[in-house]
Design a protein around this nucleic acid. Structure first.
Lengths: 202, 202
DNA sequence: ACCTGAACACCGTTCAAGT
DNA sequence: ACCTGAACACCGTTCAAGT
């Protein structure tokens, strides 16, 4: 066929198609991606270096599609709440993407910008030296875990028929699953902020 | 060839081989597994239902290979520290396994037992109703994130050349990478415990 | 510069055939 | 019951050939 007058593929369209596949099926593949755009599998490589770059494009897309408001760095608690919630909201919109991004090193400047804002808020709070990265790691772990939680179909711990009474009672008290995730996140956010405040005080 | 007098494969040997492959190469596959045991690929299915079951066997193996001491449920803070550390230590020994287990529902009774102990400690602390599951989720997110951190080769946020001064300074102050992970975990553990304590007080 | 089709080196799982 | 080899339906990536 040879080169067309106008390109049949754009990075934009590629990203959109991949995100739709992930939202629908929990993953994307080159064959499915090619079929969706109506193009041959190998031509994708004219626009993108491979699977990893598409994953980074997806990370960029979901973080930037709903920008968070400028944060007030004088109020570190409010700033952290905005930033952590922005991260989590991105995965609320696309829960099945979270597991695909865990192995991936973050290179996208806009996502790095979110971490820069985190660092600024933590310095404003009073953290110094290696505690800043430690606090970012803690927040990162929590946010990533919360995102992965959204991808899990139901409760993740499935106790056998016999035993485990306390866990089963706790799960029984957790309420409906839509509400559960939201409450667990709010609770966890309070725990993180309160724990950081206690660290500063102690 | 037909059936041998003694089975050539055992679930034990299968698990050991798979864990070695993950520790060395970050993943396992049926072809590599079969080659390592000296058996044909399809015969593995006589002992195991598929890939997912092997992953659950690996989770069981790493959690039980170094049992944690019985926890004193009257001291909830100490109990939580023991449990969260036990979880994390399992992945310190096998960091590359963490990313493979994130999509997997937990069914292993011994691992569920760890969550039962978590629930007991949290009730001893004074949490009730849906807060118990919320607290478990928070702890789970943190522990999982910390485990995934161990699998990451170096710092996960790789800022571009220009900009991001605060994040770069923070990373520069984080110290050597072996020490960094340990300090971040200790820091995060303090944050979680302190945050839970604040929740109970407030 | 951008597309195609064929090729390559991988996967997980199934199944008839053997003992 | 437990093994084998062949087959099937998938992957991601490369590359010569086209315009």
């Amino acid at each position: 066929m040879g080169r067309p007058l106008l390109p049949l593929i754009s990075v934009e369209a590629l990203t959109t198609a991949a995100l739709e596949l992930v939202d629908e099926g929990g993953d994307f593949s080159f064959p499915k991606l090619a079929k969706k755009i109506g193009v041959s599998q190998s031509s994708i490589y004219n626009h993108v270096s491979g699977r990893d770059e598409i994953l980074e494009l997806l990370r960029h897309r979901i973080i930037t599609e709903e920008p968070y408001p400028p944060v007030d760095h004088s109020d570190w608690e409010a700033a952290l709440r905005v930033l952590i919630r922005a991260y989590r909201d991105a995965f609320v919109r696309h829960p099945r993407l979270a597991p695909l991004l865990v192995l991936q090193t973050i290179t996208d400047p806009d996502v790095i910008g979110l971490y820069e804002d985190l660092a600024l808020a933590l310095e404003a709070a009073g953290f110094r030296g290696r505690d800043v990265v430690a606090a970012i790691s803690t927040i990162d772990s929590f946010a990533l875990g919360a995102a992965l939680d959204l991808a899990a179909p139901e409760i993740v711990w499935d106790p056998p028929a016999e035993g485990y009474p306390t866990l089963k009672r706790a799960v029984g008290n957790a309420g409906p699953s839509e509400e559960r995730g939201g409450h667990a996140f709010d609770f966890g956010l309070d725990v993180i902020i309160g724990g950081l405040r206690a660290k500063l005080a102690g």
